[in-house]
């Protein structure tokens, strides 16, 4: 086993960590860095609960070797609210619309939605659904999640 030292930007801050060559990003985040907001639901890239943003794009951190984060920027759910605790408009909207039930898919939903709104601030419903199609939710039936993304997009006007 040859461990590797990697440096990357995590939620806006530069971090340097030593990782096993075969560690997956989700485990580095959760176990080594203590960021447990990123969830593990299937470990095969199907549920989307482990979604993080890599250079602003959503990826499944359960499928990504941690080494791939080197030199790049990673955003997790913990990185969305401002330092003073002010919520991101999506976080506000998810609470306002009742879009979170058990909450297990919520970080993945919010991060995929963030990537969408960053690229397309006022998406149509079809675009919202497409952007969130890689995260499964078993509780909500998705309606209030779509509503929350719409609300957040409106609050950004």
């Amino acid at each position: 086993m040859s461990n590797l030292e990697i440096t990357f930007v995590l939620n806006g801050e530069r971090v340097k960590v030593v990782t096993a060559p075969d560690a997956l990003l989700v485990d580095l985040l959760r176990d080594t860095l203590g960021l447990t907001g990123t969830k593990v639901g299937c470990r095969e890239g199907e549920c989307g609960a482990c979604t993080v943003l890599l250079d602003g794009k959503p990826v499944n951190s359960c499928l990504l070797p941690a080494v791939k984060a080197a030199g790049r920027s990673v955003t997790t759910i913990e990185g969305l609210a401002a330092a003073d605790g002010t919520l991101h408009p999506l976080q506000e909207a998810f609470t306002e619309e009742g879009a979170a039930q058990c909450g297990f898919c919520t970080p993945g939903m919010i991060l995929n939605a963030k990537a969408l709104l960053d690229a397309n601030p006022h998406p149509q419903e079809g675009e919202i659904r497409q952007a969130l199609s890689g995260v499964l939710c078993r509780c909500t039936g998705y309606g209030k999640i779509v509503a929350a993304v719409k609300t957040a997009s409106q609050s950004r006007k």
């Binding site: 960021l35 907001g37 997790t76 759910i77 969305l80 976080q91 609470t95 009742g98 979170a100 919010i110």
Partner: peptide, 11 residues
């Protein structure tokens, strides 16, 4: 609003 929402949306 649900009592645990804030914790859920912030991870």
């Amino acid at each position: 609003q649900r009592t645990d929402d804030l914790l859920k949306v912030t991870g």
